[in-house]
Structures are given as structure tokens and as C-alpha cells.
Design a binder for these strands. Structure first.
Lengths: 416, 416
DNA sequence: CGAGGGGCATCAGTGACTGAGATCCGGCAG
DNA sequence: CTGCCGGATCTCAGTCACTGATGCCCCTCG
């Protein structure tokens, strides 16, 4: 128990901040519409006067963030000029540093992938790895052919725990030697790009808000199904990071009575009962998968997990049982989170999601509904993300877009 | 799985909203300072120019929300005029509808209780109960001697689940017959006061932000230890309510492997393992408490629980063991929440807290620290609330103050 | 081909914050 | 006791974002 910190009162706001904020509000409205919006529609939606909309539209057009895209005349009168996002108005680079593989993407303003690449995570010391990453980023940008002045920055998604203030990685379980490595500073210097660092699951949630379409709006939990299982949290369109950027640690929620012993001393935590590595081991023990390969790391687990899913897809009852059980267990953990936060939606995603999706979608929605404390008041949607396997890297790039262009309340406040 | 809702884009902001918001920012800064602040200090803290501070101070003085309270001259130069909250500038009425007892308070602007009263919760139909409540409110206001024009409104804290949009109570487990009762409408009509309804645990968290001093700032979880156990969540000084106002349902977090069977089908949930009723039953079974009284309702449980604590205070090892175990179990649930949200503080409170506090404060901090996923990055404070047993009712009144005077981001946005 | 209607731009007008300078207030040196 | 000085606060324009009124523009329809 430490001394209570001196509270930092919320700071005021002023005219320029207000203007910038309204600009982002309008941009978000355009972004969230599939087909673009006219100025009049925007005025209705955001509640500002048409004049203000016109002025801000002009600023956005000047900045080339939006373009006028044709007219739409339904009845009499002057047809509406449709405003649409200009995909080429801004780009961002995203890197996902995973214990097994590093993924790189260049994203345009729409959140579409312009170019991507991967490399196996080198095992050397962090400094060397960071140099490799910086090199690969340069190559990727060149290959993409994107005007460098249009690149707003670099986002980096890393496994937790992290220190958001420092921009550092703090001893993640599967990345030995990465002890308090200030990756933000290092990559910022090496690439010359404005750099943001965040946790992988948080990045995935941001990806959903930016590139995920309708399911990325409002309040939701993004369940990231990777080598580990974590969640990203978005409440009222704003991502929740927590005091130090470590929100979303759900590995020690107990989901399986009498399950395997976890390093925390309890049995049947998410971390010890439903992560892919455990399921693979279980399948090996049950004879569903042949051979026992110990010390399986990232890519190997993914392969073996795919084998397990293949068997299940082919009708192997034991394989199906393992996947079904994992769905049940994960649903219990999700219920804990959704009941704590009363969100309106759960979005599943991550590198393992595509293969497990049929088994999960069949069971999870009903289980969540059954355990939903607010069942009488509202439904709880369950959807799979539209953002694919690279959600970590895409989310990393979205961190940059979100930071620059999302209407966060924080943007209004004077900094101190 | 339902159709995805049409996203409701964030609405813009304008000049008057900005002015109102800055007013609340300044008020909050003054409120959070113990001894009052001068205009110059305010300018530094909130980041606005001294002129703006002066203008807003004048508005606040005109509204009698603050007063000039003496001068403070340390060196040469004109001494600073200290601005302080005017306790009599605004009042709010709070009601906590608990299954066992209804508590009423009148609060001043500082969050201090001006007057309070209680009544046993009548068993009749809701309409009758609501009439009684309205009557008691009238009496309380008269007795308090407060100028009615200074009463900003009425806050009502109720057990969940609730429907925030409707302002209704939706079938709480211990209040039979309260099925979708629109208590907000009913009490608003009956009393003529602006009325807000919220969940008891959320109200308790709001009480902490308003009347709890330093521990009510920043991001924290308020653990409400009542007949049931729930939590209120505050992130970055703003309370989290969830889609329908039902955030904070943690009753089904599994904390005791092989514990008692819960109605959800699992064993050892918070709800089935650590609520007072269960502990009392356990104590009876272990012979710590004599006699077995079944169907114990609210007040009786509290009495019996107090007896259990008396025994423990007197050194009864079995009683101590029961309380210690409950602390361990609750700590597990708290860890789940704090790791999910990465808050900086846990605040314990509620009607049962005072008695359990020594047993909890001895064990919980260490247990939380051990399980803190962000342990390497920051500490997790554990404190008991300064707001006493009436935290529910006080929080209810604070809902009104918070709604009118807290610098919520929501205040900036145009409504639609 | 003209009327009509809706979209959008222009032009002041309002109001909140800002910067410079004036004013006020108390302590301190002479 | 008096004048000087430093700091806090106020006065007075100035800037800028949003708003309301007005008018131009462009398309459809009769």
C-alpha cells in the first residue's frame, strides 16, 4: 500500500482544441459510413450547423483526408456532394512483435492493408532484433511505394506486460531477455517515425474500431485468441488501456473446476486450461494427435492446433470434444468480463480464431446469453472479427491513426 | 446474436458547452483541494489563462457554488484570494433502496451529510413502497431546514439489474415483486425533483469520487461489501456504467475450487462462497454461532455477521479462519477485476466493511500484489473508504452532484 | 424552357478564451 | 510614516470557432 498520489485534476479546454475535436468527429462519421456522406447528412448526424460542417470539410479536403466523390440526387434540388475518406490521405506502419513471428503492415486511411510482410522472430538480444525490425520497416515502406511524407507514424504491438509511459516491454513470459526494453525510443530513433507502443490485445481492439466496420463501434470486448488469450476493451468508442497500459489480463480467471494446476497456485485458469498449447497437449495425451513434441513454441503450436482442427473438421469425436470444451471454458471467462463491464458485444479474433471459429460460434453465444447478468435488459452480440489473422499488426498501425484522428475526449484537454 | 446496431457517431461540441465544461473543471479542482485554491493556482492546475479563471470564478461566485475565503499572503505582493466550495451552494437528496432497509440522506455540496434517516423496507407492492419513500423524502427535507430551491435533485440507488434508459428496477433477486418498476418516473412525479436512478454499487463508486477524498481520484474499483458483493468502476475519473447501467456484476467469478454449488451450475462463485449469508451459515455449521436460523433476511444477516466478527475479535480461531478465508476468496475476485482493468487502486466499503476491515486489510493487499499482472510496473493501492455505512444513499445523492457538476466528457457533446 | 426546391457558400454576429497593460494590495526599506 | 516593489487580479480589446440569415447554384419536373 503506497501513499495516495496527488490527484491530477482534469485540465480545461479551449477554442483550437474544440475545432480539432470537431474535425475528428466529422472524420469519424464519414469513416463509419460505408458509402460516404453529404454535408447535410453530416450536420444532422454530428449536430453541428451546416456552415460549420462546410468549414471543417474544407479543412479536411485541404488536408486530403477526404475527397468529394460524385453527387447523389434523389429528388428535385441540387444533388448532394458525397464526401468520402481518401484512402491515400494518410498511411501508418504497424508492427506486431510476437514471440514466434513479427508481422509488418502498411495501412491506408481506410484501414486497408497496402503491403505486408513477416519474419520469424530472431532469438538474439533485443537490440539486434530492433535493428532488424527497423531495417524491415524501411524495406516495406519502399516496396509499398507510398509517399513517405504521408506516413503518419509507426505503431508497435507487443505482448504484455508493458510500461506505457516508458514505451517499454517488461519481461513478457515468452520473450526472454526482453526486460524493460524501451522499444518505443529505439524504433523511433531507428526509423525517424513517430512511434506508439501498446499491448497486442489493445491493438487488436483498436483495429476493430478502425478497420472492423460496424462491430467496432460502441462498447465491446475483443477476445484475442493467440498463443495466449487476452482481451482488449472498448467502452463508448474509446479503448481502455488502464493505468500502465496493461488492461485485458484475463489469464487467471478460473474456468475449469479441477483443471490443470496453474503457476498462480489455482487449478483451471484460462492460462492453464484453454490456451492452444494446452489443448494440443491434451490432444496428444488423448491420442488424437500423434507423437509428443515437447517445448513446442509459437509456430509449432499453431501447426499442431491446425492439425487438431483438421481432425475435428473431419469428424474425430475426441478432437471435437476438446474444441467444444475449450469453447465452453472460454465462454466462462468472457462472461466474467462482460458482466463486469456490461458491454454490448464480444468480438473474437486473433491468429487462432479462424480455425476455432465454427466450434466457438456454435456454443459461445448461447453460453454467454445464459450467464448474462443483464439478460433481461439487452442482448449480447457475439461476432467474429472481419480483421484477419494480422489483427495485431493492423491494430498497431491503427494505434497511429486512432491517436491522430479519433475523437477521443482526451484530445479536448490541454496538456500540462 | 442480434443485428449490429447502427453506430451512433459521437456528436460535436460548441462554444457554450466548452464554457460549461471549463466551469466544472475549475469546480472540480477546487473541490479536490483540501484548503481551497487561489485564481493563480487554478490557472496553473487547469491550464487556462488567469483571465479565464477570473471570469469563470465570477460565474461560480454568482451561482454561490464557491466563496472567497480569506487571503493568503506569503511574501511581498498582493495576497492570493482563496476560493473554496460553498457547502450551502447546492444540496442533493439520496435514497438507497436495499432489500432490508431504505436509507435517506440530504447532502451538501461538499458531500457531507446534513440529515439522514432510515426505515425498514416495507414488504408491500412497489407502488406503496414508492409512496412511502416520497413521503419520507418530504419529511427529511423539511427537517433538514434546507432551502428547497437549493436542492438540485434526487438520486436513487437500487440493487441490480436495472434498465438505465427506463430508470427501472428489473427483477432484483431479493426484491420480489419489483419487476420492471419505473422508479425514476414514479419518484420524480411524486417529489417534483429531478431524479436519477443507478445501481447501488455504481452509486457507491460515485460517492467515493465525490466524498471520498484523494482515494476517489483516478482509476479505481470500489468493492461494495453488502448483502451481496459487487463493484463500482471508475476509470480516469469517470464512472463506468456499461450499456444498460449494469456494470460491476462479479457474483459469478469462481474463487473457491470445490466450493458450494452456485445457481449458475459452477462451484465456488463469489455469490455462493463469500457473501455474508454464506459465511454466517458456515459459522453456524461449524458451531461458531449457535442455533440455525433459516431464511435469514437482510438485517438478521448483518446481526449474525456482527456476532461472527465479535467472536473473531475475541480470539475464536474458527471464526477467524472463516473471515480470513473470505478475505482470500474476495481477493481472488478482486484480482480478476484489477487485472482486467489495470486500475491503480481498490477501495473497499459498504455496510459490512467496517466489521470485516481488519481481517481484510491484513491479507488482501499482499494477495492482490502477488496476483497483480502489472506488478513490475506499478503498485496497487488498497484502502478502506472514508465514506461510512451509508455509502449507498450518499452515493445516490452524489449521482445528482456528479451529473450536474462533474467534468464528464459527455458534457461537452451536443445531444441529439 | 422556366419554376421550384434542396444543397452549399458568404457574411456578419455571438461568445469563450487570450494577451497586454492597468489597477489593487500588502510588505518592506528608508 | 511614506514611497517602492512584487504579485494577484481586473479591464479592454483581439482572435477564432460556431451560428443564423441570406443568396447563389444546380438539378428535376411540369
Amino acid at each position: 500500500m503506497t501513499e495516495i498520489r496527488q490527484p491530477t485534476p482534469r485540465r480545461g479546454t479551449n477554442l483550437p482544441r474544440m475545432g480539432d475535436f470537431n474535425l475528428t468527429v466529422i472524420l469519424e462519421a464519414i469513416r463509419r459510413s460505408t458509402l460516404g456522406l453529404s454535408r447535410v447528412e453530416l450536420a444532422q448526424i454530428v449536430g453541428l450547423s451546416p456552415q460549420t460542417i462546410s468549414n471543417i470539410s474544407r479543412r479536411l479536403l485541404d488536408q486530403q483526408l477526404i475527397v468529394e466523390a460524385g453527387k447523389e440526387g434523389s429528388g428535385p434540388g441540387k444533388p448532394r456532394t458525397i464526401l468520402r475518406l481518401n484512402p491515400a490521405g494518410m498511411y501508418a506502419v504497424g508492427v506486431h512483435l510476437d514471440p514466434a513471428v513479427i508481422t509488418f503492415v502498411v495501412l491506408d486511411l481506410l484501414g486497408d492493408v497496402v503491403r505486408h510482410s513477416r519474419m520469424a522472430t530472431p532469438g538474439g538480444d533485443p537490440a539486434g532484433v530492433i535493428t532488424s525490425i527497423a531495417g524491415q520497416i524501411k524495406v516495406l515502406i519502399e516496396e509499398s511505394g507510398v509517399d513517405e511524407s504521408k506516413i503518419a507514424g509507426l505503431g508497435v504491438a507487443v505482448p504484455g506486460p508493458i510500461d506505457l509511459d516508458e514505451g517499454s516491454v517488461v519481461e513478457p513470459p515468452l520473450l526472454t531477455r526482453w526486460n524493460r526494453v524501451r522499444i518505443r525510443e529505439a524504433l523511433s530513433e531507428a526509423t525517424g517515425l513517430e512511434t506508439l507502443v501498446d499491448k497486442d490485445v489493445t491493438s487488436a481492439a483498436v483495429a476493430e474500431t478502425w478497420a472492423g466496420g460496424a462491430s467496432g463501434a460502441g462498447s465491446f470486448v475483443f477476445m484475442y485468441m493467440g498463443t495466449g488469450i487476452g482481451c482488449g476493451i472498448v467502452l463508448n468508442d474509446e479503448v481502455v488501456r488502464g493505468t500502465s497500459g496493461n488492461a485485458g489480463e484475463i489469464g487467471h480467471i478460473v474456468v475449469e473446476p479441477g483443471g490443470p494446476l496453474c503457476d498462480c497456485g489455482l487449478h483451471g485458469c484460462v492460462k492453464s486450461s484453454c490456451i492452444p498449447q494446452v489443448l494440443v497437449a491434451e490432444a496428444e495425451a488423448a491420442g488424437v494427435l500423434d507423437g509428443h513434441r515437447e517445448g513446442a513454441d509459437g509456430p509449432e503450436v499453431q501447426e499442431r492446433y491446425a492439425e487438431l482442427c483438421d481432425k475435428a473438421d473431419a469428424g474425430d469425436q475426441k478432437a471435437i470434444a476438446i474444441l467444444d470444451k475449450s469453447a465452453t471454458l472460454v465462454a466462462r471467462a468472457v462472461s466474467v468480463v462482460t458482466n463486469t463491464l456490461d458491454v454490448e458485444r464480444v468480438v473474437f479474433g486473433g491468429p487462432f480464431w479462424a480455425r476455432m471459429s465454427p466450434y466457438f460460434m456454435e456454443r459461445v453465444p448461447a453460453l454467454l446469453d445464459k450467464n448474462n447478468a443483464a439478460r433481461m435488459i439487452h442482448d449480447l452480440e457475439v461476432v467474429g472479427t472481419g480483421v484477419g489473422e494480422d489483427v495485431g499488426a493492423i491494430g498497431a498501425a491503427c494505434l497511429v491513426l486512432e491517436h491522430m484522428l479519433a475523437p477521443r475526449a482526451q484530445r479536448l484537454l490541454l496538456e500540462g
